[in-house]
Write a protein that binds this DNA or RNA. Structure first.
Lengths: 137, 137
DNA sequence: ATAATCCCGACTGTTTCTGTTGTGTATCGA
DNA sequence: TCGATACACAACAGAAACAGTCGGGATTAT
């Protein structure tokens, strides 16, 4: 159960964008260079973030990406969801089809509780908390 | 970030063993049949659980598996860890080598918090809670 | 002995991850 | 208008993980 590089890159890029908010749009190449991430790969991650409505892009010379909302209105859960799809850990929960043995399945309760814990943890952290330099855990 | 079948099967098998605790050792084939899981695959999962010290096996006719401790002393975290390895979501946390940009890396704080939330959620659930039929979330 | 049972290594098909490459399109500035 | 700077998008590819199978060997109760 590791976090994917996609997700890690995406979050780092969002933090970078939060720190440069207010400036001109930030080009992909700048983010990739400064954060040391593969450019083309990052582009596809930013595409998902754009589709998720978290960043806006402007094309052409002196174009780039910026946050589409204030950093305070973006949670880590938003970012992870945009990149990875729904957070849910298993496909057998009642709200997505369920499985044959649902009801008598005790393990379902475990994943549901875990889903909740993850969801809560990620929703609690907003991007502006992360954009300040010193993080006091 | 889905739960692997390995893990799902493993948990279900452990719940099954908790319910048959006190009886003779339960053969692999019985668990697989009753829980509708692929036999050979389940065997390899039980091997991990044995290596993790959670189940004990007896060989030969009328052999099988049983829990090596009372169900109340086994948490879901124990089970998941035995099957999947350490729960940690990223490899860059200080306690496992770290990465070059640690310290200035705000995203690290996110994964650390998420690790904690997951770990706490799974440690809180013990196997005997799951072995009773009705689960009241 | 024989049947039941665990043990274990090797193998395979599929999917996901982690990228790369190449082409096209929009925009700005000279 | 031309060219440089960007984003947009689709196709491709190697590597790893996942999910599961197969076959043989070792152990033990009856």
């Amino acid at each position: 159960m590791r976090i994917s590089s996609r997700c890690e890159y995406g979050l780092r890029a969002m933090i970078y964008l939060a720190r440069t908010a207010g400036d001109d749009p930030t080009p992909l190449t700048e983010i990739a260079r400064r954060e040391d991430m593969p450019t083309a790969f990052l582009e596809r991650i930013l595409a998902r973030l754009r589709e998720g409505g978290l960043v806006a892009s402007t094309r052409g010379a002196s174009g780039g990406y910026r946050l589409s909302r204030p950093a305070g209105a973006i949670s880590v859960a938003d970012i992870v969801t945009a990149i990875e799809g729904p957070l849910s850990l298993v496909g057998c929960l009642p709200d997505e089809g369920g499985c044959a043995r649902a009801g008598s399945c005790a393990s379902q309760a475990v994943w549901r509780r875990l889903d909740d814990a993850i969801s809560r943890a990620l929703s609690d952290i907003s991007l502006d908390e992360l954009s300040v330099e010193a993080i006091t855990t």
